[in-house]
Design a protein around this nucleic acid. Structure first.
Ligand SMILES: [Mn+2]
Ligand SMILES: [Mn+2]
Ligand SMILES: [Zn+2]
Ligand SMILES: [Zn+2]
Lengths: 148, 148
DNA sequence: TTGTTATTGATAATCATTTTCATTTATAAT
DNA sequence: ATTATAAATGAAAATGATTATCAATAACAA
């Protein structure tokens, strides 16, 4: 349990101030269900920090993304979703998305094989297209048990 | 070259009428550069079918997607992009996206290994979560040669 | 404690996409 | 070929997520 202090330190390192809205947003992200939209985060903010604006939520999420603490992704409905990036490789995962109801499931199956193939592909692509590859996403789309 | 007639037939099969806007939009999609946004398609429509509304472009794209003729995807900027789905497996590919300038590159490297891993993962996920998996996306994010 | 400057919140602005609804048109039936 | 019907279209307005503005506030270094 890294506690909340680590965040403060990591903010300082990046010349960012440690404020109440940021602390609360990080808290929401770390405890609540994953894959939250900005509006959902905004909604669950009221108890701990009423008066926080939706604008601040968006700005904080963008900052967290820029610092690499948060991953932003698109699940097909019109809004972006956000999740904390855990440390090392044990948090590495991808998404299984129901295209009808929007349900999102994390999966970590075959991560070994996946990383191996991803590495090979990254190397090939970086060389062939002179790209600096920084990240990747893998997602499976389909119908969940309730929607099929 | 399947020509334009096949489309007409495939529309009929699905109880959809064959109209000028639909023909022209399919033509644009098949000849022009891939990964076009609705607005881009709308813009390149004027010559062949002036007066076509942007609304019709959106409606047609949604139909094409529903019929499985078109793949809709998100490249990180605020708008959806569309590309024709080719027939068999020789068209199967994924995307390498520059997060700064938005450049998109198709790649088909290691499709063999990819399909193998994807199959394994699909089976495992379908069983474990009782999902009916219909599609998948793999994307690499990074900086292109000009942006790095 | 004070000064500087990042951060915030209310509000308005953007911008992609969707809805509405009256008009047109593809197509099947006559 | 004409006609009837429902699907398709287009103009305009509505929606909804995200971003820009700007004056007020608060973090934090000195
Ligand atoms: Mn996740
Ligand atoms: Mn492509
Ligand atoms: Zn579902
Ligand atoms: Zn680039």
């Amino acid at each position: 349990m890294p506690g909340g202090h680590q965040w403060r330190h990591r903010f300082r390192e990046n010349a960012c101030r440690w404020t109440m809205p940021r602390e609360v947003i990080l808290d929401v992200l770390s405890r609540a269900s994953r894959h939250m939209s900005a509006k959902e985060i905004y909604a669950s903010l009221y108890a701990a920090c009423p008066g926080t604006g939706l604008t601040t939520v968006y700005r904080t999420l963008e900052l967290l993304q820029r610092l690499g603490f948060v991953r932003k992704f698109d699940a097909g409905d019109g809004q972006s979703r956000y999740e904390l990036r855990g440390e090392g490789t044990q948090d590495h995962h991808h998404h299984l998305i129901c295209t009808r109801c929007g349900k999102i499931i994390d999966f970590r199956d075959f991560i070994e094989e996946e990383l191996e193939l991803v590495k090979k592909t990254e190397d090939a692509l970086a060389k062939k297209h002179n790209f600096q590859i920084l990240d990747h996403n893998i997602e499976f789309l389909g119908l969940c048990d309730k929607c099929r």
